[in-house]
Amino acid sequence: MDTVRIAVLSAGLSEPSSTRLLADRLTKAVLDLLDARGIRAEVSVIELRDHAHDVMNAMLTGFPAQALAGAMKQIADADALIAVTPIFSTSYSGLFKSFIDVLDREAIEGTPVLLGATAGTPRHSLAIDYAIRPLFTYLHAEPVPTGVFAAADDWGQGADRVAPLQKRVDRAARELVDVVAGRGRTEKVDPFSPESYLGAGGSFESLLGARSSDSL
């Protein structure tokens, strides 16, 4: 298999942040499993806090700055996505949603996604399934069944008495790797390119000729 491209989207606002910490842990678990299967991987990490101003400008103007456009392309070109957001007011952060809003609607169509979220208390643990998962499903991405939520207690001493964080991380990572390894590397086609509606090797001339013959 060719090198698998993994995009990691982290929407943490502080530096360092528990959101990035969870994103890194999920990424390591995925990379370890891919390596165990002899699959090479290339990782692109997008820290949304670095693009916050550009995201807002893109919402106002409709045009992303060069750095933001590069981050958006990394996600669109990825074979798999790891997306982690902090939870504010029972849902994903405004920065996270704003980035999704300026992302091309077809950028992650069919892309397997591992979802993660962080918050101060476990009370927000269901946010992945009632807020984040529907968002990615709407975009026709393919979230894996297990989402990983980490509260503040998950990083402390004596944490995870009920469901250890690393156990959840490993399970979600295995689900993502199973999908990636099963489908292999696929090239995404620009929906506005001639190939998307003419087919490989097609031409406008052949398409017009076919339509002319149909009209006869």
Rank of each mutant, 00 (worst) to 15 (best):
A152I: 08
D178Q: 10
V177L: 09
T146A: 00
S125K: 09
T186N: 05
V189L: 15
Q166M: 11
R161W: 01
F192W: 06
P145Y: 07
L165Q: 13
Y130F: 14
A152L: 14
A173N: 03
A181F: 00
K188L: 10
R183T: 06
K188Q: 12
D160S: 15
D154A: 07
H140S: 05
D160G: 15
G147I: 02
P164A: 14
L139R: 09
S193M: 08
L139W: 12
L176G: 04
A163I: 04
Y130D: 12
P143S: 14
D160R: 11
E195A: 05
T121G: 14
G184P: 05
L135A: 09
L176D: 02
P122A: 00
P122Q: 02
D170I: 00
A159M: 03
A150N: 06
I128D: 11
G158F: 13
Q166N: 14
A152P: 06
P191F: 07
D153I: 08
L135F: 11
G184N: 10
Y138N: 02
G182P: 12
R171I: 02
S125Q: 15
W155Q: 06
D190F: 03
G120F: 09
E142R: 08
P191I: 00
T121C: 03
R123T: 13
E195H: 07
L126C: 02
A172F: 05
G156N: 13
T186W: 01
I128S: 00
E175C: 00
D154R: 10
H124W: 09
K188T: 08
P164T: 05
H124G: 09
K188M: 02
R171M: 08
R168M: 07
H124L: 06
R133W: 03
H124D: 14
E142C: 13
Y130H: 15
D154E: 14
G182L: 01
A141E: 12
D170L: 11
S196F: 05
Y138T: 07
V180Q: 03
L165D: 10
V180T: 06
T186K: 11
Q166K: 07
P194M: 03
L126G: 07
P134D: 00
Y138I: 02
T137P: 00
Y197M: 02
P143W: 12
K167F: 01
A172M: 06
D153Q: 13
G147K: 01
D153T: 14
D154M: 10
D153G: 04
Y138Q: 00
V162H: 13
T121H: 10
P134Q: 09
R168T: 01
A159E: 04
T137M: 06
L139D: 09
R174S: 15
L126S: 04
P191Y: 11
Y130Q: 01
I128L: 15
D178A: 14
Y130T: 14
H140C: 01
V179F: 07
G158C: 03
P145L: 07
R174F: 04
S196P: 02
F149I: 07
H140E: 11
V162Y: 07
P134C: 00
D170V: 00
G120M: 09
A127Y: 09
F192M: 09
G184C: 08
V180H: 01
A172E: 08
A131M: 12
G158H: 15
